[in-house]
Design a protein around this nucleic acid. Structure first.
Length: 270
DNA sequence: GGTAGACCTGGACGC
DNA sequence: GCGTCCAGGTCTACC
């Protein structure tokens, strides 16, 4: 939620998002919990067509991962002190963007930098290339692959992306041209090994980024091991000694297809 | 298959 | 205020 065009309404904590619809219209969505699902409202006094309503519902459904059941995971967590808060708090869903393209760009911008740096880079991309919200042109939707594809590498470097600029640009141009179909990775029928392989084929996406994207795609067979993971696992089980990726993976191996979630929601004692 | 070094930026730190 | 060092994943060249 800290990465635009997501946001949090300061008044009531509602999740917000500025979204470009297929009709070309840019609107702000206010998404909140409702009985049996989620409620979505728009701020503007605008009429929403039937097609737009369907598009918004489909996108929010994906963003909140409303189609996935976590019951099997909850059953496993009941006997685990590190995770027995998960079922009670109904944890499991991880906010994702409407497109795999947007999440891939954002994931590349989390690598080899601080979280503050990631926020800075995403804000710069969105405000420079994203289509503006008519009621407040200072705010923008996330740029489409086609919009980003028109950028020059030099421009992206100047926005602070550094050496990641060619990665993002190649991703945008390959997606815009149809050479790369990231949205096909949403398809449940694809084996996880195939999705993993395709993600690793993207320049700028390594083991950490691929595991992170697999989590967002609802596949939890991999733990996204980064420096933070090594740090907390080391403090939890290795007395603070330096450890490698293997130790982090081994710590969650027994969680099988849920290991990514077990890691993500673990109640770290430190 | 494994490893070292380069990539880029911002923040911490010493002077 | 300036210079130096370091953290952070991925890629490439090399062994």
């Amino acid at each position: 939620v800290q990465l635009p065009p997501f946001g949090v309404d300061p008044h009531d904590g509602t999740l917000t998002r500025i979204e470009l619809l297929r009709s070309g219209r840019v609107i702000e969505l206010f998404i909140s919990e409702a009985a049996g699902g989620a409620s979505v409202e728009t701020h503007e006094r605008i009429s929403i067509t039937g097609a737009e309503r369907e598009e918004i519902a489909r996108k929010v459904w994906w963003m909140l991962n409303l189609g996935q059941s976590f019951a099997p995971f909850y059953t496993l967590t009941r006997e685990e002190p590190g995770l027995n808060h998960v079922e009670e708090q109904a944890l499991g869903r991880i906010l994702r963007s409407p497109t795999v393209f947007e999440d891939t760009v954002k994931t590349i911008l989390t690598t080899n930098t601080t979280w503050a740096g990631t926020i800075r880079m995403v804000e710069a991309l969105v405000s420079t290339y994203g289509p503006p919200l008519p009621t407040d042109p200072s705010r923008h939707a996330f740029p489409t692959a086609g919009q980003l594809a028109t950028a020059e590498e030099r421009e992206l470097r100047e926005l602070g992306l550094g050496y990641r600029a060619p990665y993002v640009l190649t991703l945008a141009r390959d997606t815009a041209s149809g050479r790369l179909d990231l949205e096909a990775l949403k398809e449940d029928r694809l084996p996880t090994s195939e999705v993993h392989h395709r993600l690793l084929g993207i320049r700028g996406v390594g083991e950490y980024a691929a595991a992170n994207l697999l989590m967002l795609l609802g596949r939890y067979n991999f733990v996204p091991v980064d420096s933070w993971a090594r740090n907390v696992v080391s403090r939890e089980w290795y007395g603070g000694q330096p450890i490698g990726d293997g130790e982090v993976k081994a710590a969650f191996e027994r969680w099988g297809p849920w290991k990514g979630l077990a890691y993500w929601f673990w109640n770290w004692s430190s």
